[in-house]
């Protein structure tokens, strides 16, 4: 905050632009690899796909040195506090890629132990579908993230300070029973809306 308070307005925009330009080409991923997607993450980093072409090859296993957390694989009950702790340890500005169906929505694992989407517990910027996604898809998501950084980033991460509201889906008051989850196929109104929208007043 201090930097932008001292500078006149007309200097801030070019500074932001410059910072984004530098940042987006050296996104250092924190590979939070739990399951199958972790192997595809390794494949993305190895010779055939070579994520180094996009400046994101410097995998750092210490969260203190990372810019983007790639959650690859399903996250289960026992792992959620670990994930949140690692996310909190990363310095600003930071982004999160939810890689694969399991991390994004629970995927095929709709069971007692698996969290149905990590965005219930930490903020997510880019979702990558697929089970597991192909390496090309992960590279595309890095490119998308670069675009997002270029468009929204600021030099002192002001854009995050304003986002105090929770952005993910609301936690359900109770788990839906299987028969409640089934939507009759012809009814498009209910088919698209499985749960009520989050209320902003909370």
């Amino acid at each position: 905050m201090a930097l932008t308070n001292l500078l006149p307005d007309f200097l801030i925009a070019p500074l932001d632009h410059l910072a984004n330009l530098v940042r987006k080409h050296s996104l250092w991923p924190m590979p939070f690899a739990t399951a199958c997607c972790g192997i595809e993450l390794m494949a993305t980093a190895s010779s055939r796909y070579d994520i180094a072409r996009f400046g994101a090859e410097a995998m750092r296993f210490s969260p203190r040195q990372c810019d983007v957390m790639i959650v690859a694989g399903r996250v289960v009950m026992k792992m959620v506090p670990v994930m949140q702790r690692i996310w909190l340890q990363m310095p600003e500005p930071k982004w999160c890629i939810s890689m694969g169906a399991c991390a994004s929505s629970g995927g095929v694992f709709d069971t007692y132990a698996v969290v149905q989407g990590i965005d219930r517990f930490i903020p997510v910027d880019v979702y990558v579908p697929g089970c597991p996604p192909r390496p090309e898809q992960l590279i595309r998501s890095i490119l998308d993230l670069q675009e997002k950084v270029q468009k929204t980033g600021t030099i002192d991460a002001r854009e995050f300070a304003s986002r105090t509201a929770y952005e993910g889906p609301t936690a359900l008051a109770r788990e839906l029973a299987p028969e409640e989850m089934i939507v009759s196929p012809g009814d498009f109104n209910t088919a698209t809306r499985l749960r009520s929208l989050p209320t902003s007043s909370e």
């Binding site: 399903r74 289960v76 069971t111 007692y112 698996v114």
Partner: peptide, 11 residues
Amino acid sequence: IGYLHSGFEKL
């Protein structure tokens, strides 16, 4: 262990 226990056998 158990940091990836996802209920395969229940499924």
